[in-house]
Design a protein around this nucleic acid. Sequence first.
DNA 1: CGTAGACCCTGCGCGC
DNA 2: TGCGCGCAGGGTCTAC
Length: 277
Amino acid sequence: MPELPEVETIRRGLALRLLGARIEDVEVRDRRLRVPVRTRQLLALSGRRIEAVGRRAKYLLVHLEGDRTIIIHLGMSGRLLVQDDDAPLDTHDHVRWWLSPPGRKRRVELRYRDPRRFGLVVVVATSRLGEHALLASLGREPLVDTDAGYLAAQARGSRRSVKNFLMDARVVVGIGNIYASEILWRARVHPTVAAGRIAASRWQRVMAAIGEVLEEAIAAGGTTLSDYRDADGNLGYFGSDLEVYGREAETCSRCGGIIRRRVDAGRSTYYCTGCQH
DNA sequence: CGTAGACCCTGCGCGC
DNA sequence: TGCGCGCAGGGTCTAC
């Protein structure tokens, strides 16, 4: 479901509400996520405070005192809800944490909900976070490393499509199916062009587009399609700002061309036939 | 080796 | 109203 801007929006929401909170209790209702939940490991975290909420790629990192981090990935349909009282349970509420925030009487509940169960909740030692299999081979953070030369170097000799290349987390993280289309529209690059055939000047455009599209989406609070919510359960609103994604047969706002959709390996790609080459 | 495609799972909207 | 189908934002594995 979420791409980098959505995850970053959720991270900020969690940090605002849960920093310094102490874990009081945990309940695992369904451990069958992408990586099976280790219930006893999660239960063993009771009593610890949340020291920071970080992010690497689309992984949320809940750092606890005592060298423990909970890695949370939302997959396609995952949500994290922060609730002040016991809201009605959903069939797909898999993990519940009860937390006591500093200076507040009532405890709050953090709830992990994920109908498709493509996400995960994993406990690791903070000191060995970077070595963990989930994180070890991830590529660069696009909002931190903004070096177009790196993309050009990684793409050298590659015949795969530039859209596929941008979505490869070993190269650069956080770019999913929606923003890959949006970024390439912004850069005026056709999604099926071979990554290895893109000139340095065009990589500059692509890199700039990555930063702009992701930053704007974060500023807007994350894209909304069918079911996205931020940490408070509010709808994001960047969805209406998407230029090509989901706009098959509509008119390009830049050149008046027709927006087309193509499907590769079951994933839709949207692009303008007029101004992307 | 690089790359494309299948697959994990559930829910939703659409056409009939 | 009910049913079958296609589609969905991620990541990993397999086969060519």
